[in-house]
Amino acid sequence: MIDALEILVLVATGALAVFGVVLTILNRPPDRTMRLAVGAVEVLLVVQAAIAAVRVFSGTALPETQTFLIYLVVSVCVLPIATQFATAEPTRWGGTVIAVGAIATAVAVWRLQGLWLAGA
């Protein structure tokens, strides 16, 4: 994977988690700014997943390809689902729901990097 992009993704998901918790503390439901932030992070995740997938299918050997691909799918899917669930009931808790999704995504990216390094 690309180290710079991975670090950017981890920072972005971390910032998103903080943003979500701040919204909860401020007693505000997820707003348009939050949707844009989620969208921006999601773009990064999709780019990262696309690059990694192309490399895997063009011959980069990994010890656990299956697991890697599952984590790759998880890294892209969790945030949209969490955001959908967070905004279905517009309360202050929506921000924390997005934060949970962002942290889970960060963990998945972290595991991806570990699996990738194991193959390098």
């Binding site: 969490a82 009931e89 309360t91 929506g94 924390t96 949970v100």
Partner: peptide, 10 residues
């Protein structure tokens, strides 16, 4: 509802 949604997310 409310904070329960955070619990469900986890």
């Amino acid at each position: 509802s409310g904070p329960g949604r955070v619990l469900i997310a986890v």
